[in-house]
């Protein structure tokens, strides 16, 4: 399987890349690691006339500390995020989501920015960036803008990225003094994609009560979402295994779940509750240092 013909450009600066996108409009697509875009092009589900490869642009890759949190360049690979001590320290759920993607070879090539921009409803990162309240920086002809994770995923394979824009980096805030996070998923056995993936990031106060918690769910619905009823039920009191299990059951309730040959909608909603309980429980244990 070979993609349809296209022109390939490899600009050396962000300005040049944005100019190329502006020049070709809807006919152009941004190429990052290519592990979402190339399969789609090989299947002839997309046939852009021009690919703008952003691999040659300096500064789009790498992980650095930023105001106590972390900044991750869009071209940083899943393997780099999985292995990063800084990501493991600041936002373990993101490192776990990266490590849960595909296989070794896919993690060596696939990138954070590419995966987020592709917005596959069964991808792992959406749950993690929703739970981490990540800020996604996007560059366009008129300069940069920052999109909150809550506003980024707008539909199946649809995001807040506008025409001619390039996702450049993702920022995650500093973890709380007593904070913890975790990502767990039930994977489709053949593809490895999430049938249900849940990320939880929480902060405890001095008395052990939940000060704040965010729960992101992927693979269950047409778009990744936050389980806000679960967050509300757990905020303000000290959790227990029982209270987490009870609250987490709401993660799939009322959700218009995906339904396919591999997992029916009822099963997906059930999984959301089970995996929310496990992910929140793990994050809680990490936060409380137990």
């Amino acid at each position: 399987m070979i993609p349809a013909s296209f022109d390939y450009v490899r600009p050396q600066s962000l300005e040049d890349a944005l100019a190329r996108l502006g020049e070709h409009g809807d006919d152009a697509r941004v190429l990052a690691g290519g592990h979402s875009l190339l399969p789609v092009m090989k299947a002839r589900l997309a046939d852009p006339a021009v690919l703008v490869d952003i691999a040659g642009i300096e500064g789009l890759s790498g992980i650095s500390e930023s105001e106590g949190g972390i900044r991750i360049g869009a071209m940083t690979t899943h393997a780099e995020i999985e292995a990063s001590g800084l990501v493991q320290e600041k936002c373990r759920s993101l490192a776990e989501a990266a490590g849960a993607i595909g296989d070794l070879q896919v993690r060596n090539r696939g990138t954070l920015g590419g995966s987020l921009a592709h917005a596959d409803p069964a991808a792992d990162y959406p749950a993690a960036v929703l739970a981490a309240e990540a800020e996604i920086t996007v560059a366009g002809a008129d300069g940069e803008r920052v999109v909150g994770a809550d506003d980024f995923f707008t539909g199946t394979f649809e995001t807040a990225l506008g025409a001619g824009e390039i996702l450049t980096s993702v920022r995650i805030s500093a973890p709380a003094a007593r904070g913890g996070s975790a990502y767990l998923k039930a994977a489709q056995k053949a593809s490895g994609f999430a049938v249900c993936g849940v990320a939880a990031r929480l902060a405890l106060d001095a008395d052990g009560a939940v000060e704040s918690i965010r729960v992101g769910v992927t693979g269950v619905a047409a778009t990744a979402y936050r389980a806000t009823s679960v967050e509300e039920a757990l905020t303000g009191s000290a959790p227990s295994a029982e209270s987490i299990r009870k609250a987490a059951a709401g993660a799939g309730e009322g959700v218009d779940a995906l339904d396919d040959f591999y997992a029916g909608a009822d099963f997906r909603r059930h999984l959301a509750g089970v995996y929310a309980a496990r992910a929140i429980g793990k994050a809680w244990i990490r936060a409380s240092g137990k």
């Binding site: 490899r10 290519g34 190339l38 691999a55 393997a79 070879q105």
Partner: peptide
């Protein structure tokens, strides 16, 4: 699978240009 700069990659999903 081949190694590109020492890293294992699936060469059916990499453009020669990349």
């Amino acid at each position: 699978t081949v190694l590109v700069d020492g890293k294992a990659v699936k060469s059916c999903t990499v453009l020669a240009a990349q």
